[in-house]
Nucleic acid binder design. Structure first.
Lengths: 211, 211
DNA sequence: GTCTATACGATGATAGAC
DNA sequence: GTCTATCATCGTATAGAC
């Protein structure tokens, strides 16, 4: 691996291996060997394997959520300017679309996306909380916006459906590296751009369904 | 643990621990100590830890899928009797509702459901394939029925949306044992029955959205 | 401050005695 | 069928070199 600093080399190696092999199936020895670093340097720089995962996720998710929040705030500002409620479509778009652009921005980002997709349903609470804590502010912003956009729906129902959408998203994000349903009896899968477009349409219809 | 046979005691213990602690965080020693069996008996009866997981999943998923398939075939038969296409609503219902009844049928079943929810997005391909192979026949039956129910949608789009629904379902199934989004700023979560009802409504709206 | 070498307890797996 | 003994590998901790 190129001669940038050890900490970054470890982060890059861990991101790749965690996403491809899973957190628990990736040994620190595999990471340090890929990153050309010493085994003990992980504990020196990050403290533990759990903390390394947290660092891997934070490095990319914080900027991504910042983009999402900016876009959501833009939608809210435009709506308040025109004195109309924001549309659910534009809000959902502001949350989902940056994921796609981000995923195409670098090779490591694609690995990262599927890693995040999995983190949401990881049995280890440490892993889940690491992810949930980071998205909660963005999630709440989106939720408040949607309450204005769809006042005919109760907040409880809205929150439930928003969680459904998170489930759908995390599943789609995982599927990036999955070769799962390639069955000859079934039609071939869509490319990633159309997939995200379809996801938006599906999620919006489910969100707006009458109560 | 009661004196039924070792194999079953191991299956029960593994089911509970896999679901609660996750597959990789559960040691064979923890399972055998809970099942009051010897460490080596796992490898004797099942061959490996992976194979044990497969056995745990198969034991419950095969009967569950049989119920699902029976219900789906009933819907298809009724429709063909009346010479009308089946409704997407009744098909989706036949697939999703048995999950709920099954989950309430025994304490072990509830653990099992969240275990299955996770298996779908497990980074380990062995784990995923173990699950996917078992649902594929049921999935294909459902898919064919939906092609008749919603002829205005192309099979590719239909399959994509069906995968979205699987993602949503697996997320909901996980959430059973998750204490994730309990935030004071957000409304409290729904009970499981209403949750499934809402899931059905959400999934149906997403499935039927215009193309 | 960074990094290395090395050691420790726990894990999944297996071979062979009973 | 069951158990004991043993093995390689895992995450982690620490002492000390640069």
């Amino acid at each position: 691996m190129p001669p940038y600093d050890t900490k970054t080399r470890i982060l890059d190696g861990a991101e790749k291996l965690f996403a491809r092999e899973g957190f628990h199936n990736t040994s620190l020895r595999a990471i340090t060997s890929l990153a050309e670093a010493n085994l003990a340097s992980v504990n020196y720089h990050f403290g533990s394997k759990d903390a390394l995962l947290q660092a891997v996720i934070e490095r990319r998710l914080l900027p991504l959520n910042q983009i999402r929040e900016t876009k959501i705030r833009e939608v809210l500002a435009r709506a308040s300017e025109e004195n109309t409620p924001p549309t659910a479509d534009s809000l959902l778009c502001a949350f989902i679309e940056p994921t796609l652009e981000f995923s195409n921005s670098s090779p490591g980002a694609k690995d990262f996306i599927s890693l995040v997709g999995r983190s949401l349903s990881d049995p280890d609470e440490t892993v889940r909380n690491c992810f949930l804590t980071l998205v909660l502010p963005t999630f709440q912003l989106l939720f408040k916006g949607l309450c204005d956009a769809l006042p005919q729906l109760s907040p409880t129902i809205l929150l439930t459906r928003l969680q459904f959408i998170m489930g759908t998203m995390s599943h789609v994000m995982c599927m990036g590296t999955l070769s799962a349903l390639n069955n000859p009896a079934l039609p071939p899968p869509l490319d990633q751009n159309t997939l995200i477009q379809q996801l938006l349409k599906y999620a919006l219809a489910g969100l707006e369904a009458p109560e």
